[in-house]
Amino acid sequence: MQKAELHRAELESLKREVAKLERGSSPAASAVRVSTGVPDLDASLGGGLARGALHEVFAQGMLDEAAAAAFVIGLALRASGKAPVVWIRQDFVGLELGEIYAPGLADLGLSPERLILVRARDAPAVLRAGEEAARCPPLGAVIIEPWGNPKSLDLVASRRLMLAAGRSGVPVFMLRAGGAPLPSAAATRWSVRAAASAPLEGEAPGHPACEVSLLRDRVGSIGRNWIVEWNRDVRSFTPVSPDRAALSRGLVPVSSGGPHPEGAARKRA
């Protein structure tokens, strides 16, 4: 028992040592925090998302990948101001999830002329280009998108990205399309699921909305969920109250076998 205690103490001190090293030469860069626009979420993160760090984002299912990507674009926009964004994407992701569509990015508030898209053949190329980009301080954000769970994406690879981000102060968002959590040095890890939007006039689908859970955070508390909406006009996430989420169309019975689809179920009072 005592021996185990000792080992634990030793391990803890080593971890602190590593953390100190990883913070690198400029602790200021990684200490800068970016507000998401959702006060409760910021508080959970200890004042916002760390700027010079690696953040990992997963989609809960294949059909939530678009929601996860939109969440990452939102975070990148929060962090980048007007600076250029580099998006590195493995070829296979485009085949599975669809190609990046510039007018859609513009609709989310990311002006396409700010974006440099790198198409990488495989995961090692994605990581290599990602590290190169993460070392370029004038960038606003780097988004890297490998496919699945590649072998090359190990603890060393994520630590290198984390270090590069820490030194340059450029946030790196890793969209883990089609992937499952692996050991990683990322500062935060998120899981994203599509959420019902607030309906607009005429029952039109509304602004992008998603449910995010913080799976891991080096400093803050984890295991909580938030439903957030992306407001392009002010480039900010806004909280969605659980009441509205419950009231939203997802839980209203829809054309429940009624003979007239134009009936009461569709026309919500």
């Binding site: 669809g98 989310l108 006009d233």
Partner: peptide
Amino acid sequence: LSVGEPPMRPMHIF
């Protein structure tokens, strides 16, 4: 972009 409008074009295209 017109203020208050949700995205009219998708972000991923097939």
